[in-house]
Structures are given as C-alpha cells and as structure tokens.
Amino acid sequence: MILCTGESLIDMVPQDGAFRPLPGGAVYNTAIALGRLGARVGYLWPVSRDPFGEQLLRPLAEAGVDAALCPRTDRLTTLAMVTLENGDARYFFYDEGSAGRRFAPSDIPALPAEVQAIFAGGISLVPDPCGATVEGFIRDHHARLPVMLDPNIRPFFIADAEAYRARLERLIPQAAIVKLSGDDLDWLYPDTAPAEAARRILAQGAKLVLLTGGAAGATGYWSGAKVTAPAVRTEVADTIGAGDTFNAGVLASLQAQGILSHEGLAALTPGYLQAALTLGAQAAAITVSRPGANPPWSHEMPK
C-alpha cells in the first residue's frame, strides 16, 4: 500500500456570483488518482468531523482509498478561497488552527505491515506544526520505506522562504524519488540547468528524479541514461491536478511492476522507468482534458 500523507482542503471556487465547495489538496488529489487507477493506497491526514470533512471522505471511499489511518477531529476543515483576477487564480487560505494545520506526531498511528511506500509533499510541508510532523514522519520511516517527495512549491504560501528551503534541504536527501516541476526548479535551483539540478539531487541519495514540463513532457534521471516521455496531446480544459495525477501514474506503475521498494528502485531499468513515465503522462492528459482535479479511472486509460 502506498501511504499518502499531506493536505486535504475545500476549494471555494467562484460560480455564478457565489462559491462552490470542491474537495482538493495536492496530496489528497494524488491519493484519489491512485485509487482510481487501481493502486493499493491509503491516506493519512486529520479529517474534521464538520460537513466539509465528510465531503472529503466520500471521494476517497469511492476511489477505494483506505482512510482508516486518518485521525478525526473537531477542528475545522481548511478552506481555500479562489478568486479570479484577469483570468488568473488567487488563493486565500483559512487555515489557522484547522484540522490539517494542527497535525501532530501524536496523530500518527502505528503503520500497518502492508505499507510499502510513502508519498508526501504539497503545502502541508510549509507551515508548522503540520510541516514539522510530516518531516518527522519521513525521518522516522524513510530508511525502511521509499519516499516520493513532490514539494509542489507555491511561493505565495511561503511566509519564511529561508526556513522552507532548509526543510527541503533536510527532506530531499531522505527521498528515494523526487519530482519537480519547472516552477519548482526555478524556486529551488535558480540559474541552474535542469539536468544539473537532477544530478545534485541524485548525488544526495535519490534513486530517481522526475522533472516535468507540461507540454514538454517528463524526464526521469537515474543512474542510467535519462528517459523521456512526451506529453500526450489533448485539448486542455485546465491544468488543475495534472501534476498530482502524474505522480499517481508513476507510483501506480512502479507498484504494478513490483519495484516500489528500496531494492526494486535500486534495480530500476529503462523499461520500468519508461512505463512509469508513460502511465503518468497518459493519466495527466486525461485530467487536463476536463475541468478541475478529476483524475481518470482505470477503465478510462489507454489499453
């Protein structure tokens, strides 16, 4: 089972002069996408007992995601108010004291034996106490379980850039797989060529570095020659959830190929990597072809 730990929230999206509440959050989206693709997946994040918490749980259950590890709390669900200015989305977070923000080490149960890997990232890594809790969770388990890390950097959400850079400098060497978008690279490694940034991360211990570039496709850097998968051409509705779905496709493929372990990733081959990148690109293409973070089900994937 792949255990996803990181934010879930409600996006309040403008619609007809009001706001429509939609479940969201980068790590939550990846968990949903993994479940829809047929992967064995669990989710760990505090879920409120308020009505929005129940709204978050329903898609997890429908996708077959195991949410039994999620602690329930009376704290309120995080809200992200979305406003549009000249077509560009801006976000205002109602997060202080929320269910997720107060995620604490005491909320983490003993992990079941079937957990084989951890996926973490998103804005849940930024503020404390939740960021420190996720960091501690990775520190405690990365030696036994491979970790995939996607920081999914949102500069507007980062109040203390120096502290967040320091956190990522501690976390990246503990990750077996690191995925970065072009925007992530610009923030983390300014004035550095993507291949050089990937080389630096591999030198810190990662087995695989995934760099995505939207229409430019995705490239995997590892101990062998780089492997590239082109983006799948499609009519784009929006790009919400594209990266989250790509992550799910890669992890689902590695799990299905039986190499989602430290030993398996050490024996990675070009064929295994090509299959993972291809599934990630195919799944992301379906997500961008329809509005919102709506990842594909396994029966919608190319055969």
Score class of each variant (00 low, 15 high):
residue 18 A to L: 06
residue 209 V to L: 07
residue 144 R to P: 07
residue 251 L to C: 09
residue 2 I to K: 00
residue 176 A to V: 02
residue 84 L to M: 14
residue 199 R to D: 08
residue 268 L to I: 08
residue 133 T to Y: 15
residue 120 A to K: 04
residue 22 L to S: 03
residue 68 A to Q: 08
residue 291 P to K: 10
residue 25 G to Y: 03
residue 49 R to C: 05
residue 94 Y to A: 15
residue 277 L to A: 09
residue 274 Q to E: 14
residue 18 A to V: 03
residue 65 V to F: 07
residue 207 K to P: 00
residue 9 L to I: 02
residue 170 R to W: 07
residue 166 A to T: 12
residue 25 G to R: 01
residue 301 M to Y: 05
residue 79 L to N: 06
residue 129 P to E: 15
residue 223 S to M: 05
residue 96 E to T: 15
residue 2 I to H: 00
residue 17 G to A: 11
residue 212 T to I: 01
residue 251 L to F: 08
residue 150 D to T: 13
residue 74 D to F: 10
residue 67 A to C: 04
residue 294 N to F: 06
residue 212 T to E: 02
residue 40 R to Y: 02
residue 262 H to S: 10
residue 269 T to K: 11
residue 270 P to I: 11
residue 62 E to G: 05
residue 272 Y to K: 08
residue 118 I to C: 04
residue 11 D to F: 05
residue 111 L to V: 14
residue 237 A to E: 12
residue 141 H to W: 10
residue 241 G to Y: 03
residue 253 S to Y: 10
residue 113 A to T: 14
residue 50 D to C: 03
residue 107 D to N: 12
residue 202 L to I: 02
residue 182 G to D: 04
residue 235 E to R: 12
residue 69 L to I: 11
residue 281 A to S: 15
residue 1 M to E: 01
residue 271 G to S: 14
residue 244 D to I: 04
residue 125 L to F: 13
residue 58 R to W: 08
residue 195 A to W: 00
residue 46 P to M: 08
residue 300 E to N: 08
residue 5 T to W: 01
residue 110 A to F: 15
residue 184 D to S: 02
residue 97 G to Q: 14
residue 270 P to M: 10
residue 45 W to A: 08
residue 236 V to N: 04
residue 227 V to N: 05
residue 210 L to V: 06
residue 269 T to D: 12
